[in-house]
Design a binder for these strands. Sequence first.
RNA 1: GCCUGGGUGGCGGAAUUGGUAGACGCAAGGGACUUAAAAUCCCUCGGCCGCAAGGCUGUACGAGUUCGAUUCUCGUCCCAGGCACCA
Length: 858
Amino acid sequence: MTYNPREIEEKWQKCWEENKTFKATEDTGKEKYYLLEMFPYPSGRIHMGHVRNYTIGDVAARYKRMKGYNVLHPMGWDAFGMPAENAAIQSKTHPAKWTYSNIDIMRQQLKRLGFSYDWDREFATSDLQYYKWEQWLFIRMYEKGLAYRKKSYVNWCATCQTVLANEQVENGLCWRCKDEVSQKELSQWFLRITKYAGELLDSLGGLAGWPERVVAMQKNWIGRSYGTEINFQIEGSEDQITVFTTRPDTLYGATFMSIAPENPLAVKLSGGTEYAGRVKAFIDKVLKQDRTVRSSEDLEKEGVFTGAYCINPVTGYRMPVYAANFVLMEYGTGAVMAVPAHDQRDFEFAKKYGLEIKVVIQPENSELKPEAMTEAFVDEGILVNSGQFNGQKNTDAVNAISGYLENRKQGGRAVNYRLKDWGISRQRYWGNPIPIIYCDSCGTVAVPEKDLPVVLPEDILLEVPGRSPLAECREFADTTCPECGKPALRETDTMDTFVESSWYFERYACPDFDDGPLDASRVDYWMPVDQYIGGIEHAVLHLLYARFFSKVLRDLGLSSVDEPFTNLLTQGMVCMETYRCESCGWLYPEEVENSLCRKCGKNALAGRVEKMSKSTKNVVDPENLIKKYGADTARLFCLFAAPPEKGLEWSDKGVEGCYRFLQRLWRLVAENQELFKDVVSVDRYGADDSDVKDLRRKTHETIKKVTGDIEKRFHYNTAISAVMELVNLLYQFDVKKGNRLFRISAFREAVEAAVLLLSPMVPHICEEMWKQMKNSGTITDAPWPVFDPQVAKAETVEIVIQVNGKVRGKIMAEADMSRDEVQTKALECEQIQQWIDGKKINKVIVVPGKLVSVVVQK
RNA sequence: GCCUGGGUGGCGGAAUUGGUAGACGCAAGGGACUUAAAAUCCCUCGGCCGCAAGGCUGUACGAGUUCGAUUCUCGUCCCAGGCACCA
């Protein structure tokens, strides 16, 4: 009877499906466990990254289930998004049709991998039932001022013909198409994530189950800094310029003012003066520069005088106001007080335009002279030229000057965040319509609840660049005002698809609920997600938005969770060697044979190991893998090759090794069928054959090891290698000699343990072996094996003997031997005599059960 | 520049609390079985010296703490990821 993965895998998948084995129902009598993997975008086919991600999650879900938890393990589709629209333009298929047929293919592929999903909870975010409630949520947020519209400069990707959020711009490039992003002034809808900036940052502290680096990235992204706001009166005007600074201690050295070119004051202050033209030209020039160029540190500091002056509130100094290219409108107040002596940027700027450099902090051991300085002094020191604060340490003066300004009502302490509001308008068709109507008489009006959902029209022309396709669709755009009944226009932008993925995990608790977005009782039962698993690339984007939405849902009274994901595992990428042929370019692995290109016969050069990607063709199609080896082998390799958080390097040989191991495991049962004819009670161990004891000890050690590896660390690779060791021992074990009954019992116990321990990882083969061993029920429903410390306890242990830190000998000792006895025995050991003979023993350290360390005089 | 990780055989990786470095797998070499091959099973496998017993050396590099360091501390180099004119 040979191992036939295809046959047994189909058989058990059918069994699980027909019995609805993985259907989750709320049961308050059982402890719940909600395991979730980031749902996929239905791009067409499953790739190896999905296989890895979902296998890692499936092991945890199946393990918890065997441990007696009520497990929720759902799956669905992040179905809105641009690829559907691009595909539609290219292949003339409607985005909906493209998306839903991809979903059908991918669902089949996931089922073929044997994942333990509750398919009854499946939904796609493009389902009307889902996006309808998202519109409802948007309106609630609008009512609370959490969604608002404003005109501003936004990130524009010309290739994608849409706006991008700050989080979606990576090094000045679009996160999706990697093309350059420019700035465009548009009216856009924003979600007020900044209102939650403080909470989002503070509650990171409670996320003990998150990888530190993700927490660090989010902290970095939110970017809180404590500082002081200071008001500067503009000369000859009622207006003030307010700046945010973290260095109020340098205020006495502020000799000019820099404002962002986008700052409305730039135009206002220069308006009607001789400087107006130059200021206007400068603003135009800076705005044309793309974001990457403008924000690079080596860009030369440039600016233009606006013609206006403001007054330093503590020195009375007339500070010329400049528009400067390095000042950002989005951070702080869009204006910076310039202290050239103590800020490198201001220093460079002052040198260029001949502005005064005034030293207000002196270092301890030397004296700064403005005319001799070649760079700004940014270290700590003592205040000078600072009136009543002279002589103070600058670190103390930060507080003192803030307090002084507060008393004089010229400023005060302030907190600033780097995080900006989340722009969600997208000029695309395949997304959730923003449920807003614009009326000439009534203004901006939310679509009333009774009129929801705003349905995405099916009949649509997609090839209109630069404008939302919905704007071209008259039947959609033309409507009547819900308040006054007069003709009005709909908002024709759709929402960023990250909105859908910001709350889908809560909806899984109640996907069929139709009286609101969330059924509180079911959400309260299942939320939060106990374990969330996905790629590190979402460390900021999705994971920050999802945390924000959870807090909004809470404040809307829809849920009671503060943080949606208790534990987070970010798995590494699947990588593979690349091949390149000088004539044919990148090669698929199957196009390479004996280091030659199959297409032209030239050399195929092995390149770097890189993330599997269609563009470099270093891909393995999971479907081919499954055809050849079966789902269990694919799963086993993904788990065995590396721990989950690290990158996984694909290796065909490694896959074969996993396949070999499964066959080896299979033969253990197949070739010993007669031993499993009768179920033997495991209580009947009386044999004292040492190899029976050794086998039983190994069995229980393995149970302990595997349980710990899965439970504490998700280190499936070491868990698998522990079972491999047990299987190796079983191959050494002769069942047929001596007292057969005891030997068979011990053998059976070990094989059962191996099969149970591997069942979350390779469930199909284990189900089949479980059945062949005449066990009742499915292994999926079997309880997790229990480790017996009595059996696992070794009677004798090996003690290592070190002399001056080097291993010089080994002895066997009874496990319960006293320290003194171990020490005596160790010192008598023959191997170490040559090292201690005739030398004075200074010290002996005994670590029970481990080693004896002897320190001798040299 | 700042913040995270990381650097261990030919390769993927292990060593969980400071206690035998290299588990397990891959590749390689050898043997058994076979008319033969495949498959399978068994053995060897960091480097250097040695017939062997054994010795020396070795976890990026340099120091330190310790009876003992892959593990802790300090410094240096390199790699990956994130942020970056943030006032």
